[in-house]
Structures are given as C-alpha cells and as structure tokens.
Computed example of a mutant assay.
Amino acid sequence: MLQHKDHFHGSDLEKIEQIYGIRKEEITSFSANVNPLGISFLLRETLAKHIDAISSYPDREYLSLRKCIADYVDTDYENIIMGNGSTELISLFIQIEHPAKALIIGPTYSEYEREIALGGGTCLYYPLQEALNFVLDVDHFTKQLNESIDLLVICNPNNPTSGAISRKTMRRILDVCKQNDIFVMVDETYVEFADNYKEITSVPLTAFYNNIVILRGTSKFFAAPGLRLGYAVTGNRDFVKSINARKNPWTINSLAVIAGEIMFRDTAYIARTRNLISEERTRMYQLFSQDSRFKTYPPSGNFMLVRLLSEDMTSGELFERAIREKMMIRDCSTFPFLDHKYIRFCFMTRELNDRLAECIMK
C-alpha cells in the first residue's frame, strides 16, 4: 500500500475557453462522463409547470422523494439519506466517521482523499495493477485489511478505469472489513450505466451489513450536475440519524425535489440511456481494441480508459489534438498510478463518438 501526494483535476471548460480561445459552448466534453441525451425528457417537458414550488419550503424530511428513490433502487425509504450532491454527503460521512486512516482503491476520483485530508485523516492507496487490467485481486487485497484502517473507499464502477467489482466480491470485502471494524463507503455514481447493474450494485447488501454506505447522484446518469441532488443508501439506522442530525435542513431546494421525483420515474429515458451507452460502449471498445497502438480495459461505466502504446503518442498531445477540434478528453496523467500514456473519454452519440475516434486514431 502506498501513500499518494497531492494531485489535481484536469482543466474545466472555462479554463479551456481562456487558454485556447474556444467558446465553451462549442466544446463537446468527452471528459465529464455525463449522459449524452441530456436531461430527462419528462423533466424538460414538465418542470416549468412547478415553478410556484419555490414559494414554499420543501418537506425537510424529503419523504416523498426518499420513497421515490427507494422504489428506484429497491430498498426501504428509511435507508435513504438526501444530500446537496454526493460531494456534501462525502464530506458529512468523513465528519461522522472521522477516520484517522483511510484506504482508497486507486487510481480513482480525487475528492475522497481531499475530504479525508481536510478532516485530519491520512490516506493510503491500494493500487490496482495494470498487468491485471486494473481488476482487483481480491485475495491479495483482503490480506491488506487490518484494524489500523478506519475507512475503506471504493468507486464502483471505478473512475477512471471503468472496471467494476461484483456484489459477490464486495460481500467478501465487507466480511473482512466487519472483522476489522472498517467502515466502507462505496461510490456508485456510474453503476446505472452498467450492463450487469444487478450483479454490481451493493444496495442489496445494506440489508445484511451495517458497515456500508452507498453514494449515488443525478449528475452523470441523469445529466443534471447543476441540480446538486445526491443521495446515499445504508442499512445502518444509527448512521442515518447521525448524518441527519449534523446536516443543515433544506439543503435541497423545492424544484430539485420535484425534478428528482420526475427523473427517477422516467422509465423511457432510463431505458434509452442504457441502450445507447451499451451499444456505444461495445462498439468503441471493439474499435480501439483492434488498433495495435492502443490498449483498452473492459469498461463497465459510460467511459473507457485507454493506454497509449506508441512511443510518439502521449496523453497531453492527444488532449491538444482533440481540443483543437473542439472535443475535450481526459488526460489521465494527474491520476495516482497513471502517467502520460493514459487517456479517458466517455461515450456520446454514435456520430460524436465516430468524430472523436477519427481524431484520436488518425
């Protein structure tokens, strides 16, 4: 296990606009991992009709929304915790657990490390091995777990590798964590995109384990990052009470509450999203796998990690090439354990994906 130094996110669209002189509205972001269909069709048609909702406070318990989410993920509504995006929930969890030492499976999203450090904790990384296609060696991993660790953080499917841990494997991990009094935070931001969703999601495990909390949100799958609507699932009712006692009331506004209930019930949009991503994930994976200049890793999320095998090709150069054609990919050199030979891009519509592939593979 290794301790990792500070690392940073890639440039956002505003910075790109300033540096390259390209209007951000003209840039197609293959870096944000957001649903290419945009917001829920039903939401677009109906939200404006509820504008009067801002004249009153929302239910501070968010009962109707929690019941809606509970139906969506198939759990009890009392297991649902609402938050102003998953970022607020991560912060609250760290404040409650206050881990002195946390273990993070990496390479992964940097916000976990940041919040743990802000809380005074130390982060260790368990590095996924490229030789294993960044697939977790669960036997080796569980042997590293011990009582000195307070918190384990797992992104599933993982960003940026797009690999996933099955629920069967997660159960093995939870058993060992239970023995060592380790609390487990699982970020399922991208799980709804997975073809084998029912084999990956850990929500059913919350009925049997009280040492797990699962993070979800609406930023990626429902293409609503500006809504700031996040939620978590846990079977630990004491933990739920602790979170609710600490967090501020009404952190979710009235329109976000209504929007959430509309989105989670838009079954046509949900099905169309999954079909599109499934088809394009398979097609793009096969396309890049056939080119000897690239190494691909089987993706479960709505994005793919690619290793550049040509000596004359770097992540920075490909980022430059793509952005000059008004497409933004992720240069993964800032992720722990990755370098200038890795890029990540999400799956958009067929036409846009073809345009990106032509740019990268020329």
Rank of each mutant, 00 (worst) to 15 (best):
residue 42 L to P: 00
residue 260 G to L: 07
residue 296 T to M: 12
residue 73 V to M: 03
residue 256 A to T: 08
residue 213 V to M: 12
residue 40 S to Q: 05
residue 220 K to P: 00
residue 127 P to T: 03
residue 187 D to Y: 02
residue 206 T to K: 12
residue 31 S to N: 10
residue 222 F to A: 05
residue 26 E to R: 13
residue 300 S to T: 12
residue 185 M to K: 03
residue 252 I to G: 00
residue 136 L to P: 01
residue 279 E to I: 14
residue 3 Q to G: 04
residue 69 I to M: 09
residue 48 A to H: 15
residue 82 M to H: 06
residue 158 N to Y: 00
residue 105 I to L: 08
residue 265 R to W: 00
residue 98 H to I: 05
residue 290 Q to V: 03
residue 59 D to H: 11
residue 357 A to N: 11
residue 248 N to E: 15
residue 165 I to M: 02
residue 125 Y to T: 01
residue 194 A to K: 03
residue 297 Y to N: 09
residue 110 S to N: 11
residue 122 T to Y: 07
residue 292 S to P: 06
residue 49 K to M: 13
residue 34 V to W: 07
residue 345 F to T: 05
residue 257 V to N: 03
residue 151 L to H: 00
residue 309 L to M: 14
residue 332 C to L: 04
residue 47 L to S: 10
residue 174 L to N: 04
residue 265 R to F: 03
residue 206 T to F: 10
residue 256 A to Q: 10
residue 316 G to A: 11
residue 292 S to T: 11
residue 223 A to E: 04
residue 25 E to K: 15
residue 73 V to N: 04
residue 248 N to W: 10
residue 10 G to T: 10
residue 81 I to K: 04
residue 16 I to P: 01
residue 318 L to Q: 09
residue 319 F to V: 02
residue 265 R to T: 09
residue 128 L to V: 08
residue 258 I to G: 01
residue 117 A to L: 15
residue 102 A to M: 07
residue 351 E to S: 13
residue 289 S to A: 15
residue 190 Y to A: 09
residue 59 D to L: 10
residue 58 P to D: 06
residue 287 L to A: 13
residue 301 G to T: 06
residue 359 C to P: 01
residue 306 V to F: 08
residue 224 A to L: 09
residue 88 E to S: 14
residue 144 Q to P: 01
residue 169 T to M: 09
residue 261 E to P: 03
residue 220 K to W: 05
residue 345 F to G: 02
residue 248 N to K: 15
residue 305 L to Y: 07
residue 66 R to H: 06
residue 224 A to F: 07
residue 257 V to D: 08
residue 207 A to Y: 11
residue 170 M to A: 10
residue 57 Y to Q: 15
residue 315 S to G: 13
residue 36 P to Q: 04
residue 132 L to W: 05
residue 229 L to H: 08
residue 167 R to D: 00
residue 253 N to A: 11
residue 274 R to M: 13
residue 205 L to W: 06
residue 86 S to A: 14
residue 92 L to N: 08
residue 170 M to Y: 10
residue 259 A to C: 09
residue 209 Y to V: 10
residue 332 C to T: 01
residue 6 D to F: 08
residue 133 N to W: 01
residue 261 E to G: 14
residue 168 K to V: 10
residue 75 T to A: 11
residue 81 I to N: 01
residue 72 Y to Q: 08
residue 68 C to A: 15
residue 296 T to I: 06
residue 361 M to Y: 05
residue 244 N to R: 13
residue 72 Y to G: 02
residue 295 K to D: 02
residue 276 L to H: 04
residue 77 Y to K: 09
residue 69 I to N: 01
residue 253 N to Q: 12
